[in-house]
């Protein structure tokens, strides 16, 4: 499903360098990515999503060689294949929870927003216990509710790959575990692969595999995680 070979990425002359000679992740696999701050966890997710481009090597996700796509094609690939859950959830403050869930459809002309999508969004929200919160703005939601909205948004396009960047970092341990379970169960329902960046080692038992970026040739900078 995901194949990385001879990957090399460097941030200018800042000294940060991520090198992954070979990495393979299977379809539907749930993988935790750990490593110290600045080891390149977020960078790896951005490379897989095609937000950033490797200076060398190959990244293959499903049938696409992401590393060789044009800007526009990488964007199309991202829309079609990737679901994101961000560290701070990154909900749009001026949109309701329901509109936040539908956001990928509102901003991408390749996705058609029709009744079936609305129905699916409703089902997702229901499965996450958000049915009565859809009209609320993010500012009126609890951390846990915001997190669930973010997961729904990541799943609304039924992606093949879900990339979560410290998505439970701001939640208490119990909420974090239940959120992770929700995410995994939704991904399982779709057969999606999950790459989950975390610092919380208590969550690792929920994953099929853990990748520690310290094992790869990465050089940390003092600026924190990239």
């Amino acid at each position: 499903m995901i194949e990385i070979s001879d990957l090399e990425f460097q941030y200018g002359d800042a000294g940060f360098r991520l090198c992954i000679p070979r990495l393979s992740i299977g379809q539907g696999e749930k993988v935790a990515i750990v490593g110290p701050s600045g080891s390149g966890k977020t960078t790896l997710l951005m490379l897989l999503a095609g937000v950033q481009v490797a200076s060398r090597g190959t990244i293959r996700v499903a049938d696409s060689i992401v590393s060789s796509l044009s800007d526009a094609d990488r964007r199309r690939f991202r829309i079609a294949n990737i679901g994101f859950v961000f560290q701070e959830f990154e909900l749009i403050e001026y949109l309701s929870a329901g509109e936040n869930i539908l956001l990928p459809y509102l901003i991408n002309r390749y996705l058609k927003l029709d009744a079936s999508v609305h129905e699916f969004a409703g089902d997702l929200a229901k499965s996450m216990g958000l049915s009565d919160k859809l009209a609320r703005f993010p500012g009126r939601l609890s951390q846990g509710e915001r997190q669930r909205v973010a997961i729904c948004r990541a799943m609304i396009t039924s992606p093949d790959v879900v990339l979560a960047d410290e998505a439970t970092g701001s939640l208490d341990p119990n909420t974090a575990k239940s959120m992770l379970d929700l995410l995994i169960s939704r991904a399982d329902a779709r057969g999606a692969t999950v790459l989950f960046v975390t610092h919380d080692h208590s969550l690792l038992d929920r994953f099929d595999r853990t990748i520690d970026l310290v094992d790869y040739h990465a050089t940390a900078t003092a600026a924190g995680d990239r």
Partner: peptide
Amino acid sequence: REMNTMFRLGCSRTT
């Protein structure tokens, strides 16, 4: 930050 989020979700710069 909002723009970056949209971009990561596949929104084009033009949009």
